[in-house]
Design a binder for these strands. Structure first.
Length: 587
DNA sequence: GCCGTTTTCGGCCCGACTGTTTTCAGTCG
């Protein structure tokens, strides 16, 4: 998989061209880099299949870029890249990480005082040499030193689960300030991206200065980057920036639309505005100098001839075209899950008893949960063997007899062994309501072997769901190498559901995979992977992934009441077990 | 350098804030 290297080279060329002041090309390289990074298939395979012509079908890749990719694949280098790097041999990646320092500044520092590395930069700043470079002064020198300090403390992007609770707390706090009329979280948090780079807040207030003052002096603030009359920017102690915008009420919707992004979605919207001889900015939609919309997002989209688009869809991945055609998906609503099909208890590595889990789930409005403790080959979790599972089933029967209006399903998170077989015998699996299968070992098998292993597990007639299908853990473990298209094909063929594991550091499937799966007609489940009674709210993160993946309620098995759910699981007692094909006939 | 249900040429989003500048470029989102 050479996609990351190719994307990195394109990103670097973009920055190097930016340095030279070349117009437009840097954006083209940047777009191509993003496009390549987002590819599912290894770029070397695309090239092997169809040569440069196949490369040119990738969005943002034309003749010239396709040739550069081919050049890299055959030689490991791109001549233009080498040439640019030789002209300005600096550690771009690290230097660009300094807040406030961009391509132009880096070039100037290199040319005037020979700064090439972060160490050079720090030495020059300490020696007072930066201030002698044109365009820099005493203050920028201080900012650079501070920036170097922050570079070490920076958390980078954090999983949404680690950011959203704090963002909501700040939102609530801003809302309590005297004279505040409206508050909103914008940016990637509102779009529920899986990782977050910074926080964006929007406020309408009668006393903006007071709000700015309170914002800049919150206890979480480590440093204030800037503070104007309408915009404030701070670094929080968790190593993340937070921005505040103060906007007039008549612009709130336009500002919300603008600052929710994504950037690409915004660009696409502003292009539509231009086509209609309108102008869209954060203050509203304008015809000439007259505002025709801005108070609400609905109003703004309507002025562009579009229905309101859910924030999770705003990634410029076809939502504009769908909106124009009146074909936006009816994406899954928050709170629309009736059950949770992956939970662990104190029988293995969970914290709480079966009954405590059931009561917590019921309190949150769920109608059923499946208990899916680990199985025996996962020894460190005291995984269940057949005997232990039978005992647990009896226990569940006893608790179910006590519960009103709630059902505990018997399940297991069955380990997929290296050869693709399961570590629980078929007779026991047949007695379970819900069988999830999952990879927990041998993460580094070759792509083909890993794919075959997982597909073999899905072919087990009792395997209802493939849990956390790609195995990634955000910030800790990359997804394993697997042919996802083949997983989708076999899931469809065997009527195995794929899971969106909603545990905040998993989110697996991700949004793009979920979208691909439902496009193919595969059913999904969204599960919390709860390891304690406090984890059920994680389901919302899974719903967010589903929404970003254009998933509708009909695509998700656990939006159904328990009897219908059981009937629609492949290993369940319901109709269609032999695979009449009826289920997927609409595709 | 890419792209096209108004285009194969002529576009390519838009504004706030800062610092260093005597009127604006660079950076950021």
């Amino acid at each position: 998989m050479k996609n990351p290297q190719v994307a990195q080279i394109f990103r670097e060329i973009s920055a190097l061209l930016d340095m030279e002041g070349v117009p437009f090309k840097p954006r083209a390289y940047e777009k191509a880099a993003a496009s390549i990074a987002a590819l599912e298939d290894p770029i070397e395979e695309i090239f092997a299949r169809g040569g440069v012509k196949a490369l040119e079908t990738i969005p943002g890749i034309g003749k010239s870029f396709a040739a550069k990719i081919a050049e890299f694949l055959s030689s490991g280098k791109v001549a233009d890249h080498e040439k640019l790097r030789a002209a300005t041999p600096v550690d771009l990646d690290r230097l660009l990480g300094i807040e406030g320092l961009g391509p132009k500044g880096i070039k100037s520092l290199y040319e005037h005082i020979g700064v090439r590395t972060l160490a050079d930069l720090e030495a020059a700043a300490r020696a007072g040499k930066i201030r002698q470079v044109p365009g820099f002064g005493e203050k920028s020198e201080q900012k650079i030193l501070q920036g170097i300090g922050f570079l070490q403390a920076r958390a980078g992007r954090l999983p949404i689960g680690a950011v959203l609770p704090l963002a909501r707390e700040i939102e609530a706090r801003l809302g309590e300030i005297r004279g505040v009329k409206q508050v909103a979280i914008a940016g990637s948090i509102r779009r529920r991206k899986e990782t977050i780079g910074d926080m964006d807040f929007l406020v309408v207030a009668s006393d903006p200065a007071l709000v700015m003052e309170r914002f800049a002096t919150m206890p979480e603030v480590a440093v204030v980057h800037g503070r104007g009359s309408t915009k404030g920017s701070v670094r929080l102690s968790i190593g993340m920036d937070a921005d505040l915008r103060l906007v007039p009420a008549e612009s709130f919707g336009a500002a919300l639309q603008y600052f929710t992004g994504s950037k690409d979605h915004g660009v696409a919207c502003r292009k539509i505005a231009i086509e209609k001889s309108l102008k869209l900015n954060e203050y509203g939609v304008f015809r000439g100098s007259r505002s025709i919309a801005g108070r609400s997002e609905e109003e703004v989209y309507a002025a562009l001839g579009l229905p309101w688009i859910a924030p999770e869809l705003r990634e410029d991945k076809g939502e504009i075209a769908a909106a124009l055609a009146g074909k936006l998906p009816h994406i899954l609503e928050y709170g629309s899950l009736r059950g949770d099909l992956q939970t662990q208890t104190s029988w293995t590595d969970g914290a709480d008893s079966i009954e405590a889990m059931a009561r917590a789930a019921k309190k949150l409005g769920l109608e059923y949960i499946a208990i899916t403790d680990h199985t025996r080959s996962l020894a460190m979790t005291h995984g269940s063997d057949e005997k232990k599972l039978r005992r647990q089933m009896a226990d569940i029967d006893a608790i179910n007899a006590k519960l009103r209006g709630f059902r505990i399903l018997k399940g297991a998170e069955v380990n997929i062994q290296r050869d693709g077989t399961l570590d629980i015998d078929d007779a026991t699996l047949a007695a379970l309501d819900v069988v999830g299968v999952a990879v927990h070992s041998h993460f580094h098998l070759p792509r083909k072997e890993m794919t075959e292993r997982i597909c073999r597990a899905m072919r087990n007639p009792h395997a209802d769901i493939l849990f956390h299908p790609t195995g990634r853990v955000l910030g800790r473990r990359e997804p394993y190498e697997v042919d996802f298209e083949e997983i989708v094909r076999v899931a469809l063929e065997t009527r195995t559901a794929l899971e969106i594991d909603a545990f905040p550091d998993r989110l697996d499937l991700n949004d793009d995979h979920a979208r691909r799966a439902v496009e193919a007609g595969v059913k999904l489940t969204i599960d919390s992977d709860a390891h304690s009674a406090a984890h059920f709210p994680f389901l919302d993160y899974g719903i967010a992934v589903a929404r970003r993946g254009w998933v509708e309620a009909k695509n998700v098995l656990n939006t159904q009441p328990v009897e219908r759910l059981l009937a629609s699981l492949k290993g369940g007692p319901g109709p269609g077990r032999k695979g009449s094909g009826r289920r997927h006939s609409q595709r």
